[in-house]
């Protein structure tokens, strides 16, 4: 152990907090180095000077604890308010409206700093009433019905303290979501294509009264169209390789008339 290390222990040797083993080492070192006792005397003098509170030094104010209690009340009230807002549950708050026991008017407003609950107020020791004199309880019991529910919701989202533009933005977003949601769940009209010929012929067409018709090859297109028009018929498909058309009739009674036409060589009802 060198001299510097020993010298660095002298301050705590002087204030009496050096561990026993180190104290013994310093004792031995001081015996061997009597000149070091001068340094020890300096530290002792320093201790004496520092530990002394002179008359011109300021003193702690006697109202300090009263002010502290006021700050504690503010803190607890803020915590209570914060918790009420956060959870939107009915709580019973105790609001001090009188001068405190120590002459400090207490406020129920303050800055929330953590999640302490007013429910943690002491059951033992000094109660808030004892510390603050007259108190008035404000019951904020739950309101019933829709109004109460809405109030709890607005409290929960801190609606009253939300800036106007933010309220508008929130309402607009909710409206947009509602419109889109409604549109999403409305019944949709399916888009489909009706094929009038070929293997993928329209199921709508095939469900109606359909017939296969064979015509005189000498029948002109104009005459065929006139025939269809006369019988309120229309071509569904065809002609196939045999020259057969599939037609659809609106009126079943016209089958006989159609069959009787001189240009119709073949007429066969299609079975659904």
């Amino acid at each position: 152990m060198n001299a510097k290390q020993m010298e660095q222990r002298l301050a705590w040797y002087a204030n009496g907090t050096l561990p026993e083993a180190e104290r013994a080492e310093v004792d031995a070192w001081l015996v061997e180095h009597p000149e070091a006792r001068l340094q020890l005397a300096e530290y002792s003098f320093l201790q004496h000077t520092v530990s002394e509170v002179t008359a011109d030094e300021p003193q702690l104010a006697t109202t300090g604890f009263d002010e502290l209690l006021a700050q504690v009340d503010q803190f607890e009230a803020a915590q209570s308010a914060q918790q009420t807002t956060a959870h939107a549950v009915p709580v019973e708050t105790t609001t001090n409206v009188a001068d405190g026991m120590f002459g400090q008017r207490l406020s129920e407003n303050g800055l929330p700093e953590n999640g302490l609950s007013e429910n943690n107020l002491p059951e033992n020791g000094i109660s808030e009433r004892e510390l603050s004199g007259e108190t008035v309880k404000e019951s904020t019991a739950a309101q019933s019905g829709l109004t109460g529910f809405l109030n709890r919701i607005t409290n929960w989202v801190a609606w009253q303290t939300t800036p106007g533009f933010a309220r508008v933005a929130v309402v607009a977003q909710f409206a947009l979501v509602a419109v889109l949601g409604t549109a999403l769940f409305l019944p949709q009209q399916e888009q489909s294509y009706d094929v009038l010929s070929g293997p993928g012929a329209s199921t709508t067409a095939t469900a109606a009264l359909q017939l296969d018709i064979g015509l005189n090859p000498a029948l002109t297109m104009e005459a065929f169209q006139a025939l269809l028009h006369k019988h309120q018929a229309e071509v569904v498909s065809g002609p196939n390789s045999l020259g057969i058309y599939r037609i659809q009739l609106q009126d079943e009674t016209r089958i006989a008339s159609l069959r009787a036409h001189s240009a119709v060589l073949y007429l066969q009802r299609v079975q659904p």
Binding site: L60, F65, V72, E76, N120, G125, I126, L131
Partner: peptide, 18 residues
């Protein structure tokens, strides 16, 4: 006790340390 919001304990600690 202070953790349990005991103001008596706060007063005792204040008297010793303030």
């Amino acid at each position: 006790q202070i953790a349990n919001k005991d103001r008596t304990a706060l007063k005792l600690l204040y008297d010793r340390y303030a």
